[in-house]
């Protein structure tokens, strides 16, 4: 069970350099809308945050949640309500969404961790479906039509966000902040304990860790960060709709995570970008996209379980074939 981090043969300096280049590109992007559409870029960033937040549970705590759409979409509804019906300023509306989903996540956690493994996945799915129906029937959500248009509001009551490029920098800042937090959580002592629980729960318990409390907190953190992503998406698109709370969304985020690589911190973001690109450019194919996504899902499970980043890490750190551990034992690469 005990395993050491797969060392990346990329020096920390190179990693830092890569992130800096990426950041520079993202900062420059809104000034070249002819190359990439800023709204689409913001959408990808939201999904990247969503997937990485989801992976806090799946990859690092070993908890399979099939109900994350409840957090992503639920937060969008709350933010939309605060912006449209209460007229709050944008940052308060987003905070309201995050707060709501953090509490909702803790509630999910309290119920779901009473069972383990596959049962836990079914419970989260059922709870999320309950949230779906609740929003479907609530008076403020507009049922099948969704909430729209939602005003973007003013940041701190001052900065008008109806301008796309201003909003872009807010979204970028929030997403980077969120991802930084995910990374911080994963590489903290708290993250170590989560991995200990994932690897051997009875042992972690016997060492005196309050396992249930750790799991519930992990649920709440993952849900809150997923909620942040959902709130941002709501502000970007001025829309909160049923598709975001539907179980298809829960499936999508699992796929993004699997595809990107669940044994890493930022792998899911790669998966999120790939799936968003696929949905964006092949939108005209209609239901065929669902079929293709299903096939990718099946392939990911059958032959590509490490995911994109996991595969890259594996290639970079290739040792003599005998020394390669089975993928299940692979520790989280610290990237």
């Amino acid at each position: 069970m005990l395993s050491f981090p797969v060392s990346l043969r990329v020096s920390p300096a190179m990693k830092r350099g890569f992130f800096l280049v990426l950041l520079a590109l993202l900062l420059a992007a809104p000034f070249f809308p002819q190359i990439i559409y800023p709204i689409f870029l913001m959408k990808m960033m939201c999904f990247a945050l969503f997937a990485c937040a989801f992976n806090l549970l799946l990859g690092h705590a070993g908890i399979v949640s099939f109900g994350h759409a409840a957090f992503f979409g639920g937060s969008a509804y709350i933010t939309g309500y605060a912006l449209r019906d209460l007229g709050w300023s944008t940052e308060l509306a987003i905070l309201a969404g995050v707060l709501f989903t953090t509490i909702l996540g803790a509630a999910f956690g309290v119920l779901a961790i009473r069972r383990q493994g596959i049962y836990l996945a079914m419970i989260t799915l059922a709870l999320a479906q309950m949230v779906y129906f609740t929003f479907l029937q609530s008076s403020f959500t507009g049922a099948e039509d969704g909430m729209q248009p939602i005003p973007r509001g003013h940041l701190f009551g001052l900065v008008d966000l109806s301008d796309d490029s201003r909003l872009y920098f807010l979204v970028l800042a929030c997403v980077i902040g969120g991802l930084w937090l995910v990374n911080r959580i994963v590489n903290s002592p708290f993250g170590e304990v989560l991995r200990a629980i994932r690897e051997h729960e009875p042992r972690a318990r016997s060492m005196g860790y309050a396992v249930d409390r750790y799991k519930i907190i992990a649920f709440a953190l993952s849900a809150g960060l997923s909620g942040l992503a959902g709130s941002l998406k709501c502000v970007v698109f001025r829309l909160a709709a049923l598709t975001d709370v539907h179980w298809h969304m829960s499936g999508d985020v699992i796929l993004m995570t699997l595809l990107g690589g669940m044994n890493s911190v930022f792998g899911p973001a790669i998966g999120a970008v790939l799936i968003s690109l696929l949905r964006h450019y092949f939108d005209a194919l209609g239901a065929w996209v669902t079929v293709v996504i299903g096939i990718i899902f099946i392939l990911c499970v059958l032959v590509f379980r490490r995911g994109v980043l996991g595969e890259i890490n594996h290639l970079l750190s290739r040792r003599p074939a005998t020394a390669v551990r089975p993928s299940k034992e692979e520790q989280n690469a610290q990237i």
Partner: peptide, 8 residues
Amino acid sequence: GLVLVLEG
């Protein structure tokens, strides 16, 4: 994944 393929 099979659900998505069949439904789609």
